[in-house]
Amino acid sequence: MWSFFHKLGSPPWLYRIAGVLLRWLLPVSLLALGTGLIWGLLFTAPDFRQGNSYRIIYIHVPAAVVALAGYYVMALAGAVSLIWKMKVADIAMKATAPVGAALTFIALVTGSIWGKPTWGTWWVWDARITSMLILLFLYLGVIALYEAYDNKAAAGRACAVLSLVGTVNIPIIYKSVDWWYSLHQPASIKFTGESTIDPTMLYPLLLSIIAFYGVFTCALLGNMRAEILARETRTGWVRRLAGGEV
């Protein structure tokens, strides 16, 4: 157990093991993604109310779910790096931010595209979209803060504090936006009743969510590897690696 933690502190080991993980996780994730999306796109019946436009759900919901989870991953990594000063955690935190921001962006854009045939406008200030927009701001804030510091060790700690503050605030923000929306909700775009999703629609959605988690992890591992290299360019093992890959 302790030797595992010890190894986690060793950049060459981490670099190699992330590469090995990536080599089998990436094909599996892409396969799952392809299966889930084609299943949802071509082999499910359209929604009786929204027609075919509902098929965007198979990318919109997974992106939103994983984007939110990604923020917690980032904050958790930040907390670990603050408390135990583990380098891996710091690297993981830095690697998460751009991936999470990209997924939030996907959720926002697909939500907006979905809104056009459903509500007739590209953008509606509905509770879920507004929350996603705020989540994007939170991610971009972390990235901006990291880039603003010249001292990258301090940058990591500052971002860790910021993402922890964000984690505490996200439930408050989400609840308040929900409440705000229920107060101001225009009657024309109200969806009546909680629609229970049909199992034939649910399974591809679940598969697609799992696939998005896989893709997220792959991007995270890849970013971590690149970040490890960037931080270790002066060390012998990276130089040997560079020399060996001619």
């Binding site: 999306l37 796109l41 965007i56 990318i59 919109h60 992106a63 854009v109 595209i113 979905w114």
Partner: peptide, 9 residues
């Protein structure tokens, strides 16, 4: 809409 959303994603 659907294909644009998928393509962009």
């Amino acid at each position: 809409y659907v294909w644009a959303a998928y393509g962009l994603t």
